[in-house]
């Protein structure tokens, strides 16, 4: 059997625990935090690598983003991806999910054939979880979201468990797209040797012109977007009372609150 042609979509995001938010202006200062690969996308990559190891095949990673997203692609190469493509162009900037999905779908079409596309369930920054299903629709292929278990994969189909609160079993015909949860697997870490090797690896860079055969540039980036972020508000340390108890009386105080509140339900 010839191997699977797997595509993994990865997004570079800021380390969410370090990024600073300006409460006054509502600005997100991305430069305040180091960039990393969206954590869920590492589970998608791990799943791809496991399929490749078991059944043979190739893993291509694609990311749309600024030039610096190259480091996430190199990290993916270090972990075992075969090929990496960066979609970068000022005309791709400011994209909402639909414009992002159009660029990614066009890039996948340009690659030629594929069997399986893997994405994270969502990102830690934009946090919509929409890009995966949108790419599937644009490519006209089935998808399953919140995949927490990959049961079987064969030449023409895949059987997965989708975590929708209750868990459902689905069989999808290939080619198909899966968005995956953190429960799916534990991503491997690249070795130092792999990291050094990946440093020298070539990353292919595509611009809007490279995608023009499949999507016009005015459907991409800010221009092609259908939603606009018009304002950002940083919720301040909120409306919480912030009463702190330390001593002996804490038990009684908390019990009082519980008794008055719980009885009222």
């Amino acid at each position: 059997m010839e191997g699977f042609r797997i595509v993994v979509l990865i997004k570079q995001v800021p380390d969410i625990e370090k990024v600073r938010f300006d409460v006054e202006t509502g600005r997100v200062d991305r430069s305040s935090a180091p960039a990393e690969t969206n954590p869920f996308d590492l589970n998608a990559l791990e799943a791809a690598l496991q399929i490749k190891e078991r059944c043979g095949g190739t893993v291509t990673v694609i990311s749309m983003g600024p030039r610096q997203a190259e480091s996430s692609l190199k990290d993916a190469i270090a972990r075992g991806a075969d090929r990496a493509i960066l979609l970068t162009d000022p005309r791709l900037a400011g994209a909402d999910t639909i414009a992002t999905a159009r660029a990614l779908a066009a890039a996948i079409k340009k690659l030629g054939g594929f069997d399986l596309i893997l994405c994270g369930e969502k990102t830690v920054d934009g946090d919509t979880g929409q890009v995966g299903p949108e790419v599937a629709e644009l490519l006209g292929i089935p998808h399953a979201a919140y995949v927490c278990e990959l049961r079987e994969i064969s030449r023409d189909r895949v059987v997965v468990v989708s975590d929708m609160g209750d868990k459902y079993l689905y069989e999808l015909e290939l080619p198909a797209l899966l968005t995956v949860t953190r429960e799916l697997n534990t991503p491997r870490l690249p070795t130092l040797k792999d990291l050094l090797r990946a440093k020298r690896a070539g990353i292919e860079v595509w611009t809007a012109d490279d995608l023009s055969e499949h999507v016009p540039a005015n459907m991409l980036g800010y221009q092609g977007s259908r939603t606009r972020v018009v304002k950002v508000v940083i919720p301040s340390a909120e409306h919480r009372k912030g009463i702190i108890y330390r001593g002996e009386d804490a038990v009684e105080k908390i019990a009082e609150i519980l008794l008055s509140e719980v009885a009222a339900i």
């Binding site: 979880g129 299903p133 949108e134 629709e137 998808h143 979201a145 939603t227």
Partner: peptide, 23 residues
């Protein structure tokens, strides 16, 4: 914005070529 809704809505939005705001 249940898991089912968040899986279904983006496919519809993409097919209709319209904007979708999440959650």
């Amino acid at each position: 914005a249940t898991p089912w809704g968040r899986s279904l809505a983006p496919r519809i939005a993409a097919a209709l070529d319209t904007g979708l705001t999440a959650d």
